[in-house]
């Protein structure tokens, strides 16, 4: 898949964008230039992800800076918004009407002609596996089904740029995986900005990852590049046999261990030698079952970037 980082002629160009909610600075001089491919937007709750989506899609105006979709301002130019597919956090459906009627409505909103939108409805329903739900009322759908329909709605007018706010949150693993597979295909010829808290999902799907923290982009690059540049050691883990003595000993040594599969797992700090801990545990008659080296992953990088705040 192509890399998502390109120049300012990118399908989605966010340049120095700032936005506030009352006294709260939600975005601060955010710059992102995205080409085709899928960019995962990561960050803790309240980091500004939803605000960035809203400003990027022309739902809200930026206080400072510019947003361009294929060179046009989505807030003032409706033609630019015609190129945008938008899935807000939590899919919205008119529960009084069938899925097909809901999609009919959005087909008309986007100015598609009747035959065109009927065809598109069938296409996206097949693509996101909800063809059997088309004649069911919106109120009768589960959350996962609503999410699938929401994605179909966002793609109904075949947009070039997609904003997807946590599309797989709250879904069962099978449904989430099915959606991920579809997103992978969708991103092949589109620009997709995708917010998620699922780091494994981001690592598996994204071409690029952007970290947003307190309204600022603190890192944006290909996952491999970020991991290589971040100088974040995955470190080593010491595995300790479970037992009352082990827990007490670890606490007395000041370690915050995690219990896993009948063992205590101690992650060492950068530069800390496992031999030191092993020696101190042996002195306390605690049995050490092993020492592992852990590869750096997106999880480590996320915590590293978050901790830099």
């Amino acid at each position: 898949m192509t890399t998502a980082i390109v120049d300012s002629d990118a399908p989605l160009a966010v340049e120095g964008v700032s936005a506030t909610y009352g006294d709260l600075k939600a975005l601060s001089a955010v710059t992102l230039h995205l080409g085709k491919g899928l960019t995962a937007l990561l960050g803790p709750n309240g980091a500004g992800k939803t605000t960035l989506f809203r400003v990027g899609a022309g739902v809200l105006p930026p206080e400072q800076g510019t947003v361009r979709i294929a060179g046009r301002d989505p807030f003032t130019d409706p033609d630019a918004k015609a190129e945008v597919g938008y899935l807000a956090h939590g899919s919205s459906l008119d529960g009084r009407r069938t899925v097909r009627a809901n999609l009919d409505f959005w087909g008309r909103v986007y100015g598609l002609d009747a035959s065109e939108w009927a065809e598109r409805i069938e296409t996206v329903a097949e693509q996101f596996d909800f063809a059997d739900l088309l004649d069911r009322d919106g109120d009768a759908l589960s959350r996962g089904q609503r999410q699938r329909v929401g994605l179909g709605r966002a793609l109904l007018h075949d947009p070039a740029v997609l904003f997807l706010d946590e599309p797989t949150s709250g879904l069962d693993p099978t449904t989430a995986q099915a959606l991920r597979d579809e997103l992978d295909a969708v991103a092949a010829d589109r620009t997709v900005l995708y917010a998620t808290h699922n780091l494994h999902e981001a690592a598996a799907l994204a071409d690029d990852v952007a970290f947003l923290r307190e309204g600022e982009i603190v890192a944006h690059d290909a996952v491999e590049t970020l991991l290589a540049q971040a100088d974040v050691s995955g470190g080593r883990q010491v595995l300790v046999d479970a037992g009352a003595d082990a827990e007490t000993a670890l606490r007395s040594l000041g370690y915050d261990a995690q219990r896993r599969n009948g063992e205590w797992l101690v992650t060492l700090a950068d530069g800390e030698a496992p031999a030191d801990l092993v020696a101190r545990l042996v002195d306390r008659d605690v049995r050490v079952s092993g020492v592992d080296r852990v590869e750096t992953d997106l999880d480590d990088l996320y915590r590293h970037l978050e901790a830099r705040a």
Binding site: P78, K81, A82, S91, G111, R153
Partner: peptide, 17 residues
């Protein structure tokens, strides 16, 4: 309340429209 308004604002219309 349903979030449809947000989708409308993201559709190809100005806020005024």
């Amino acid at each position: 309340a349903s979030g449809e308004f947000e989708n409308l604002l993201a559709s190809p219309y100005t806020h005024g429209e």
